[in-house]
């Protein structure tokens, strides 16, 4: 380990930073998209809308039964076919992540909504609120507050999962590091560095998540 070459990392910081920007952008966009669609799916299932609830449940179970890599390949193939024009790898991958993560987020959100006591819903309806108002002002704010630690944990998982864009060669943090590793024959340095960076970010995130968990439970 004596000949560990720190210069290779230092010299390539700007290039690696570009990759990290792609990783973070993908994470943030997929988290937002996943939560939005996930919430819709969860509400449809909880409100028990006929047929739609069944479709939502089928969607969730279907996506949860597939490997993310397969979903990435599918969308990479399907998005240009459906749109009738070429789209970059980033758009295809983002759509894949949103569709895939929505299934997982919807389960988290469903559990969060279920944790708000049904007495509150009954009370809200009794004072004349519509179902939508009740969801919007009473249930969802409480549910999301309670869910923050779990949503954060899922975001960390998603952040780690974005490394799988490797299979379509999108230049994220890992692919950027791999390019340097192959070009300059510095595999040990680059992959160790990648591991340390991911670990630091994810570990900090999980500490924050458990801190929030403790704060909310007191």
């Amino acid at each position: 380990m004596g000949d560990f070459d720190f210069a290779i990392i230092y010299n390539n910081i700007p290039f690696l930073f570009e990759g990290m920007k792609t990783t973070l952008l993908l994470t943030v966009a997929a988290v937002i998209g996943g939560i939005v669609i996930g919430t819709v799916l969860a509400i449809i299932r909880i409100a028990n809308v006929p047929i739609l609830a069944w479709i939502a449940a089928a969607y969730v179970n279907f996506f949860r039964s597939l490997p993310l890599i397969l979903v990435i390949f599918w969308l990479y193939f399907l998005v240009p076919l459906v749109l009738g024009r070429p789209v970059g790898a980033f758009s295809s991958v983002l759509i894949a992540f949103v569709l895939f993560e929505a299934a997982y987020y919807s389960e988290i959100i469903r559990a969060g909504i279920a944790s708000v006591s049904s007495g509150q819903v009954a009370a809200a309806r009794a004072i004349g609120m519509t179902y939508t108002q009740c969801m919007r002002f009473i249930v969802l704010p409480q549910a999301f507050k309670a869910m923050i630690p779990v949503l954060l944990t899922q975001a960390i998982i998603l952040f780690q999962d974005t490394s799988l864009v490797y299979v379509v060669g999108l230049k994220d943090f890992l692919v950027s590091a791999e390019l340097i590793a192959n070009r300059d024959q510095k595999l040990i340095e680059m992959f160790m560095f990648v591991a340390v960076v991911y670990f630091t970010i994810c570990f900090a995130g999980s500490l924050l998540s458990s801190h929030l968990q403790r704060k909310l439970s007191t």
Partner: peptide
């Protein structure tokens, strides 16, 4: 010019993009 990869060349030629 439309960039294609080994995986996107078929959908793109099938739907008339290229």
């Amino acid at each position: 010019y439309v960039p294609v990869t080994g995986q996107t060349r078929i959908p793109l030629i099938a739907n008339g993009s290229i």
